[in-house]
Simulated scan of single mutants.
Amino acid sequence: MTEGSTPHLSPARITVLGVQPADPPFRIVEVDGEFVGRATSMTDVLLIAAESGVLIHDLDDLEEVRWVGGGKFTWTPH
C-alpha cells in the first residue's frame, strides 16, 4: 500500500459550530481552533473571519470552512 492511496484532508482554518438556541440563535466561529466570535448569518462568518485575518473566498470549500451541525444555510435550532 502506498501513501498516495490515502486521501489527505487538510483542516479548515475556519470552523462554524452548530446552532445555539438563543434570541437570536447563533453559531460559534473558531479560527485555528480558537473562539473568535458568534455569528447569526453567513455574512457574520465572513466578517468575523476577515477581522481575524482570514479571507474566505468560498463558503462551500471544505478546505476553507468546516460546517458542524448543519451547512451554511442552517441558522435555526432543530
Rank of each mutant, 00 (worst) to 15 (best):
M1E: 13
T2D: 15
E3S: 09
E3N: 10
S5Y: 03
S5G: 01
S5D: 05
S5W: 04
T6G: 00
T6N: 04
T6E: 05
P7D: 12
S10H: 14
P11Y: 05
A12I: 10
T15R: 12
V16T: 01
V16L: 01
L17R: 15
L17G: 15
L17C: 15
V19H: 03
Q20V: 11
P21Y: 13
A22E: 14
A22H: 15
D23S: 12
D23Q: 13
P24G: 04
P25K: 11
P25A: 13
F26W: 08
E30S: 04
V31H: 13
V31W: 08
D32A: 15
E34Q: 13
F35G: 01
F35N: 02
V36L: 00
R38M: 08
S41M: 03
M42C: 05
T43L: 12
V45D: 01
V45K: 01
V45A: 04
L46D: 06
L47H: 06
L47N: 07
I48Q: 05
A50D: 13
S52P: 07
G53V: 08
V54S: 08
V54T: 15
V54D: 08
I56S: 05
I56M: 08
D60N: 08
D60Y: 02
D61A: 15
D61M: 09
D61E: 14
L62W: 03
R66E: 15
R66P: 01
W67Q: 05
G69A: 10
G70C: 04
G71V: 00
G71Y: 00
G71N: 00
T74H: 10
T74C: 05
W75M: 14
T76W: 05
